[in-house]
């Protein structure tokens, strides 16, 4: 699937959300731990939380769970890491945003606008022969859109990397399972 290649996150990908102290150098500490184990980070998004002392890092990696367990344990050891949760992709809502500047000559412009509509994107900038489109949604939807736009010619593209939250309960009979496995700090 082209989409898998685009995000790099295969079916076994893991989503870690890491709550860290909002201090200089923390991102470098976190990412270098992955590098040290030879793990490729497919996407990484950082943003402040509602508490200004902390930031949340959402990391997507594609590794077997057992080496990942070692990495998360090593992450815990970082003094500035407060909490780590591992989200199972099956139990998570994942979203990503993309901006893409696509070729839209008068002859193809209509088709591009139609596809933007179908994907519920928004045109955020218009040039003589190009359009810039904003699209948010599940990463796979972004992959598909990117794939379609490639046919027209992409001149610039940026994706934010995904953010994720656990899926909420709906079925009454289901056991309490938030889909979020809090690895906490031991103790």
């Amino acid at each position: 699937m082209a989409g898998t290649a685009a995000t790099g996150a295969g079916p076994r990908h893991h989503i870690l959300t890491v709550l860290v102290e909002n201090k200089a150098g923390v991102l470098a500490r976190v990412s270098s731990l992955f590098a040290r184990r030879g793990f490729n980070i497919y996407s990484l998004a950082v943003a402040p939380t509602d508490d200004e002392r902390f930031s949340r890092i959402t990391i997507v990696v594609d590794v077997e769970s057992s080496p990942l367990e070692q990495v998360t344990k090593q992450l815990f050891k970082l003094i500035n890491v407060v909490k780590i949760s591992e989200l199972d992709p099956a139990d998570a809502v994942e979203r990503e945003m993309m901006m893409v500047t696509v070729n839209a000559e008068p002859g193809t412009r209509g088709q591009v606008i139609e596809l933007v509509d179908v994907f519920q994107g928004r045109i955020v900038d218009v040039g003589h022969s190009e359009l810039t489109v904003e699209l948010a949604g599940p990463p796979s939807k972004l992959d598909d859109f990117e794939d379609l736009m490639r046919a027209y010619g992409i001149s610039a593209l940026q994706r934010t990397g995904r953010v994720a939250l656990p899926r909420l309960e709906r079925q009454a009979q289901r056991l309490p399972n938030t889909g979020i496995r809090s690895l906490g700090k031991v103790g």
Binding site: E21, K185, G187
Partner: peptide, 9 residues
């Protein structure tokens, strides 16, 4: 005050 550092004893 180290919110991320609480070793288990």
């Amino acid at each position: 005050d180290l919110p991320g550092y609480k070793p288990t004893v």
